[in-house]
Structure formats: C-alpha cells, structure tokens
Computed example of a mutant assay.
Amino acid sequence: MRRTAYIGLGANLGDRGETMRAALRRVAELPSVNVERVSAFYETPPWGKTDQPPFLNAAARIAFDGTPYELLAGFQRIEQELGRVRYEHWGARTIDLDILHIEGLTCADEALSLPHPYLTERAFVLVPLYEIAPELCIHEKSIVSYYDEIDRTGIVRAPELSAPYPLMLIAASDAAGGIGRNGQLLTHCAADMAYFREMTMGGIVIMGRRTMESLPARRALEGRENIVLSRTMERADGFQIVRDLAELWTLLGRLVYDAERPIFAIGGEECYRLLLPYVHRAYVTCLAGTYEADVFLPPLTDFVRTGCRRREDCIFEIYERV
C-alpha cells in the first residue's frame, strides 16, 4: 500500500548542509521511496541539551511502500552510513532522520511512535513542516495552529542550500537578458560553445523539451547525462525523461549516489524558472549587443556577481546565491 509520510532531518556536526543533502539523496535512493517535496534548511538553536552547536533542520514529504518499520530501518542504515553516533540523549549528531507522521496511521511501541510524540512541541520541527504542509492536521488540530502558538525565536533560514541537490545554472544572454529566438540560440559564439562544453563535460545537464529539440539532430550531449523535464514526452534516445521535480530528485538520487557530479540547468526559460530556487551558482555568458529574443533568463535577484573574465567577444560572469 502506497502511503504518504512526513519526515524530519537534523544535523549539527561537520558539513551540515552537505550531510543533509546526502541524507536526502540516500532517502530518494531507497527502492520503495519517492521524495516529493523538501523544505528550506533552517538554522535552529539546540533543544533539550543546550550546550552544543546550532542545528540545521528540514522536513520532507515522501511516498513509500512497505511498513513503517521497514522505512525506519532504512533511515537507521542511512544514519549509520553518514556517521551517526549516538553519544547521548538529545546530544550533538552528524545526522538525524525521524518519521514525524504517516497519513492514516498511528502506533505507539518501543520502536516507533506515530505521530512523533514531540512533533507539536518543537519549533525546529514545526517551522519546516509548516512550510511544506500547512494543511496537515495532527491530533485533529492544524499545523498552522501549532505553528502560530509555538515560540520560533532564533529559527532562521540557513545560508546552506535549501534543496536536496546543489544545482548550477549555465546560460548565454544578450544585454536584454534574452537567451533564445524561434527555438534556437540567439547566435553561435564559438567561445561560449567551448566554455559550455568545458564546464558541463562529465556532469549532468537538465533541460526542457524545447532545448532538447534545439540540439543538433536532437542528439544527447556526449560525455554528459542528459535529463529532460517534460510532461508530454515519453522517450527519446540518449535522454532520461522526468515529468516533475519529484521524479527529478528521485532520478538524481540514483545518478549521484556514490559520485560527486556537477549538475547544470541549461535551459530554456521555463526550465530555468522552475529550477532557479534550487540553484546556488550561475555561470552567465554575456553576449555583445542585443537580439530579437523571445525567451529570457529569469532575473538573478538573490545572487551577487563573484567573478568575471573576458574571452574573445564574450564576458563570462559567475554569480553566487546570497
């Protein structure tokens, strides 16, 4: 039976952000699990035992097959793989994975209590859960009500990326922000083509259907894993097709499980707009002049330029999320 569950993640030792993302990738890799939505990462003060570093906390909604105990066992394996050591109750930990709530199910035994007994009492659980499931009801009371009543002092969105995968964006745009015209690039710039190949080779590239159709002979880019986001496409040789972000996260969980591979959004406009909230770095080639573009790069309003260099007629800029 397919069930919907809400889970909590926490870490306060080591590289917290990357550990949280690694945990989400491994959850997505579990054969019976689909990760459907992930909250932002929040920095939260320690709870219970206060003489320890601040935590990163997040919540996720998943769909899974099997029993809650099988899911719990999978989570415990992931904790062990990522170096979880249980030094003391409520103490510091590398990673913590908790099952918070499973729709239509309650239980209370030594192994598992559902809903989680502290779910409605802990702001570090309620804040990320409220973000992804404000309509949820626990003990016949809405998450909104619990959220409004809880003390949220000291809880802020963390500077670490708030997504399971640290994505990058790469694009070429003219002075007006245009990136394409009539389903094609604005212009052929040899320096930009070489730069794009250099940056993306060996990595994963994510594109929309129209960008895929604009590739020469609609052939996949060699030396890279090609993913197309499309609700209408069924298959295309050399490409993996995903219909939405949930399928994308699940696929990426398989592709980057044991290897660090750069992941780039490469266009077009709709693909950029959908993935921009998950992008931490953008590589933008500034083309000389303006063209009669009909698609545009979404504004990088949450980014700051950190690098710039010129090659031939192009200026290559690097932007980092603030």
Rank of each mutant, 00 (worst) to 15 (best):
E131T: 07
M199D: 03
F75N: 08
C271N: 09
T211C: 06
L169S: 01
A23K: 03
Y291G: 12
G8P: 04
L245P: 09
A59E: 07
P115Q: 02
A175Q: 13
H188K: 13
C286N: 11
T200A: 08
E213F: 10
Y118L: 13
V242Y: 00
W90K: 15
I170S: 03
Y69K: 10
D237N: 09
H139W: 11
H101G: 11
D96Y: 11
M168G: 04
R309W: 03
A293F: 00
L30E: 03
L114K: 06
R181S: 03
T44C: 13
L136C: 07
V322E: 11
G238I: 06
Y87D: 14
R16V: 09
T200V: 06
V205Y: 02
R218K: 14
A282K: 00
E270F: 08
R25V: 15
D244R: 02
T94L: 05
L287I: 11
D96E: 05
G8Y: 07
G268E: 02
E198L: 13
I102N: 14
F41E: 06
A73F: 13
I227L: 01
A190G: 04
M1P: 05
L105V: 12
T306Q: 09
L185G: 09
L297P: 00
R152K: 15
A236G: 10
I95P: 06
